[in-house]
Design a binder for these strands. Structure first.
Length: 564
RNA sequence: GCGCUCGUGGUGCAACGGAUAGCACGCAAGCCUCCGAAGCUUGAAAUGCAGGUUCGAUUCCUGCCGAGCGCACCA
């Protein structure tokens, strides 16, 4: 199945053990140009070791290597170009996929060890904005990827349900709030209050002081403050769950910031015991000068805790309760410094597992090239975008496939798929300038494009009206026209491996677009349902494509409707 | 000022240090009496600047320019 490895082994046999198999495998590449074959081995590195011209080495190697897997070996300059045996590789690959079904591409490297994933983490009383979309969608996909690699994912939604913004919110509600309005449209009304607070605070600084004092009351357990907090929290969570349902995202834990309120004293004590805590400007900090980082603030001068304190408590709690092998934090790039500090402090505390914590940063969702600001109300609401996308999908269905049953379900799958895919298709570190137009595009490299390809392939299998055979019959097919599709099918496990190693779902998104493109070209060129001796083999190929496309979409958290 | 991230056709993005730098959107021209045109085919169009390492640099290193984000009592 791994042809690269096979080639590396052959090279190793033929060579006088100048390099080991791993090194040789590293050098093997897939040519950009298909005319150069399926695998290529450049001889430059070898030339240095053996002290012969690379062209000569290539020539010599080409004469010595033989295997039924390689049907042709060409020498082009310093390159050894290997052409795989199309019939053998195609029939093996297709048979393998049909046999393994959605298990194809699974990697058994995790040994069922737990991996916690901190994702989504919206702030209560603030709207679920496009910014949270990124963490939710990337984290969700990473959970599936990690699972595919044999780990046990634990999705944790570290809800932002505590902090000074609640003091501000309570202040605003006390001054201008209306219970009825909040009940009717909680998030929007709370956002309005939050924005108003910041507008007013510019000319009236005492508001900030009031906010701070309300938060202090909250921390001290003041009943009035607590009941307001509880109310805001409940209303917000209800709204969030509606969005998660739309996107089909589920969590194993909603333990947010408030959950750690009673677990922070312990952290502070531990830090004191380990003599890491230092007073600085009346605040308690951990110095990180050795690590060349700014100090990490643990307690404010008024004794209140901070973000870092909470995250330390959360890290300890997660280690103790989940015994994670890996702890991923899918949080924006702008918090890189915070996670460096967090990990550094844990390391200083002597926890060896600190290095198992990985911050997975991603670029910002910008608006007109600038950061969106909740305070100024410059946010785009995710739910509105999703609903608009669903409505657009519905229109497309009415126009293109009016007889479809269950249009609403499919519209949801396609509309939401478009938004999620748009976020996953590019390398996560790139900033994204928000564009509704781009997000709701259904043509080109988009979720709906992949879904459409899948639906078309399913349609063929339906029309063939033969259950996909468990094995493909020997056929006269040459696999020439199918070859681009086949070679991509063999690449799926690699795409999964890359996405895991780099914690990068876009590797899979790009892969399924490539596969969909190759299949669509094949579809345009070959009449698959033509009755002839090759039909069975072609249908098996189509079945393989549906399996891999569907599994690829699943790993991104996107649904795959069979008709659309 | 210091730190992190990023500079590729008009726009959005690809390219384990390798061959002629790929794809999509948009634009221009085609393709449904034929398996779903949310598709396919063809065309025009790009590596910020200057050095360095290397047989070979879009990729690695240094400097500069440009963008975004951070840099103690927000998260």
């Amino acid at each position: 199945m791994n042809y690269k490895q096979e080639l590396a082994e052959k090279l190793f046999e033929v060579l006088g053990h100048e390099m080991d198999v791993k090194e040789l495998e590293m050098l093997i590449e897939k040519p950009k140009n298909q005319q150069h074959g399926d695998l290529a081995f450049p001889c430059f590195t070898l030339a240095k070791i053996i002290r012969k011209s690379p062209n000569m080495i290539a020539q010599e190697l080409s004469e010595k290597i033989q295997s039924p897997t390689f049907e042709k070996i060409e020498v082009l300059g310093a390159y050894l170009n290997i052409f795989l045996n199309k019939k053998l590789v195609s029939e093996d690959t297709v048979a393998e996929i049909i046999k393994q079904k959605e298990k194809y591409g699974a990697l058994n490297i995790g040994n069922n060890r737990p991996v916690t994933i901190d994702l989504s983490s919206p702030n209560i009383a603030k709207p679920f904005s496009m910014g949270h979309l990124r963490s939710t969608v990337i984290g969700n996909s990473l959970a599936f990827i990690v699972e595919k690699c044999g780990f046990k994912p634990i999705r944790i939604n570290h809800i932002g349900d505590w902090g000074t913004q609640f003091g501000k919110l309570i202040t605003a509600y006390k001054l201008w709030g209306d219970a009825e309005k909040v009940k009717q449209n909680p998030i929007k009304e709370l956002l309005t209050l939050y924005v108003k607070f910041h507008e007013e605070a510019e000319s009236n600084p005492s508001l900030v002081e009031q906010g701070r004092s309300w938060f202090k009351s909250l921390e001290d357990g003041d009943e009035d403050a607590l009941s307001l907090w509880q109310w805001f929290r409940d209303e917000s969570l209800q709204e969030f769950s509606r969005i998660y349902e739309l996107m089909n995202v589920e969590f194993d834990s909603f333990a947010g910031e408030a959950f750690y309120n009673d677990k922070m004293d312990r952290v502070v004590k531990l830090l004191e015991e380990k003599q890491l805590l230092v007073e600085s400007d009346q605040a308690q900090v951990v110095e990180l000068t050795d690590e060349q980082l700014p100090p990490c603030l643990i307690k404010k001068s008024d004794g209140a805790t901070l973000y870092a304190t909470r995250d330390l408590a959360a890290a300890l709690y997660r280690k103790e309760n989940y015994d994670f092998d890996l702890s991923l934090y899918v949080v924006g790039n702008e918090q890189s410094l915070h996670f460096k500090q967090l990990i550094a402090v844990l390391d200083k505390m002597g926890y060896s597992w600190a290095k198992k914590m990985v911050h997975i940063p991603f670029g910002m969702m910008l608006k007109d090239g600038k950061k969106m600001s909740t305070r100024k109300g410059k946010v785009v609401l995710l739910e509105e975008v999703l609903n608009e996308s669903i409505a657009m999908a519905k229109n497309s269905i009415e126009e293109k496939n009016p007889n479809l049953t269950d249009k609403d379900t499919v519209a949801k799958q396609v509309g939401v798929g478009a938004v999620m895919f748009h976020d996953l298709k590019n390398f996560r570190m790139n900033d994204i300038d928000f564009s509704l137009e781009d997000m709701l595009r259904f043509e080109g490299e988009t979720g709906p494009y992949v879904q459409y390809t899948y639906a078309r392939a399913c349609s063929i299998l339906r029309k063939a009206n033969k259950a996909t055979e468990t094995s493909i019959q020997p056929s006269s097919i040459s696999w020439e026209k199918e070859w681009k599709v086949v070679i991509l099918l063999t690449e799926f496990p690699n795409a999964i491996k890359r996405s895991f190693e780099q914690f990068d779902p876009s590797q899979i998104a790009k892969y399924i677009v490539d596969l969909a493109q190759a299949f669509n070209k094949y579809y345009a060129e070959v009449k698959i349902l033509e009755e002839n001796a090759d039909q069975q083999a072609r249908l098996a190929l189509v079945a393989s494509v549906t399996i891999v496309l569907k599994e690829g979409m699943r790993l991104l958290g996107i649904e795959a409707p069979e008709e659309m």
